[in-house]
Design a protein around this nucleic acid. Structure first.
Lengths: 193, 193
DNA sequence: AATCCAGCAAGCACGCTTGATTGTTTCTTC
DNA sequence: GAAGAAACAATCAAGCGTGCTTGCTGGATT
């Protein structure tokens, strides 16, 4: 009975989890329209019917995936806590915008700009993550938001990080990014203090 | 013979031009996969067969559209020449990353990250435009690139502009953008001088 | 004036994706 | 141990986009 583990439930949750992870991966690799339910299911190692069992329609699957991406990004953000030093902070923040999670999020933004039903969900979650990121940035940088200009400076930094992530979409931009990060870390050191 | 105007040729060129403009508009409004040849042709006011006559395949149409976007962006960039003052310069540069042309370019970047045949064309043209933009930024800001750090500072500014443009994709970000621009303009005024 | 050919419109066939239906296995519960 | 439900697999029909083919119009060539 239910006293011990319920393997059926476990397996079900596992496949559901695998499907969501697969959706994120496929989003980053094949884009929005390239991430067909067949592709996602095959990548997850489950049949299409199984995917359809958990998420009756494609929209159901990807609305869940959008929330999943948001949670993962939030977790990745919280994992940054503890970084000290301006350069390390900037590097860590910029690092948020490279990697598969940001790639998936980027695909979702662009898709949401065209798909009306996707737009509100993405904008809401993005606004929430944006606020979280801003708070964490202030914390890592040890910045005092009450001082005039600090808020806009940090926002600009995060916008720069987004832009660097975007530049990294098509070509490996690591080398240039590192130089920009060190330069702006020193600039911020002067501005914020 | 061809001594005077050849109206047939003119009409042909006009249709071709309209198709390219329509492709860019549809790209910005409906995205890559949403910009079907039927949609582009209808938006241009020509039949699908006409579009297919000028561009036998969809790939032909959009490879031409990619170059067209690059040319338009280059023209928009050159039109900035003459802006003086750091704030005006930053504002103008950031302005490059808002508006339909950047939206279209953004859709192309994301599409190119998934479509292998599109990627090299987009990356090549983007690299060229990137260099042009950097040169123009140095010029508008009156920056001396030989000084250490100036190159990375300006690159970071342009990355921020890209990030602001990306943030403007889903929601109207004008108000926040204006504040960030003024703040970063003052920062650059300090750093570059 | 007669012929030719580029520009253009309409229709058809193919492949792909989605959503729905039906059948099969596996676990729970009495 | 058997009945029932849940998870999963396999197949089918409908819609859409692409590419190709056919047929027509209006300038260009001789």
């Amino acid at each position: 009975m239910g006293s011990v583990t319920t393997p059926k439930q476990d397996r079900s949750r596992a496949t559901r989890q695998r499907l969501l992870e697969s959706a994120v991966t496929c989003l980053a690799e094949h884009g929005w329209t390239g991430s067909t339910v067949t592709v996602v299911a095959e990548h997850a190692g489950v049949s299409r019917g199984a995917a359809q069992h958990h998420f009756p329609t494609r929209e159901d699957l990807f609305t869940a995936a959008v929330e999943y991406v948001a949670e993962e990004r939030s977790a990745e953000l919280r994992a940054l806590d503890g970084e000290r030093g301006t350069h390390a902070a900037v590097d860590a923040l910029v690092g948020l915008y490279t990697g598969p999670l940001f790639r998936a999020a980027l695909q979702l933004w662009v898709a949401a700009s065209n798909e009306p039903q996707l737009r509100p969900r993405v904008t809401d979650l993005e606004a929430r993550i944006g606020r979280e990121t801003h708070r964490m940035a202030l914390r890592l940088l040890g910045a005092d938001e009450t001082r005039p200009g600090v808020r806009e400076t940090v926002q600009g930094l995060l916008d720069m990080a987004r832009g660097l992530g975007l530049a990294n979409l098509l070509t490996d931009d690591s080398a240039r990014r590192a130089r920009v990060v060190t330069q702006w870390a020193t600039i911020l050191d002067d501005v914020l203090r």
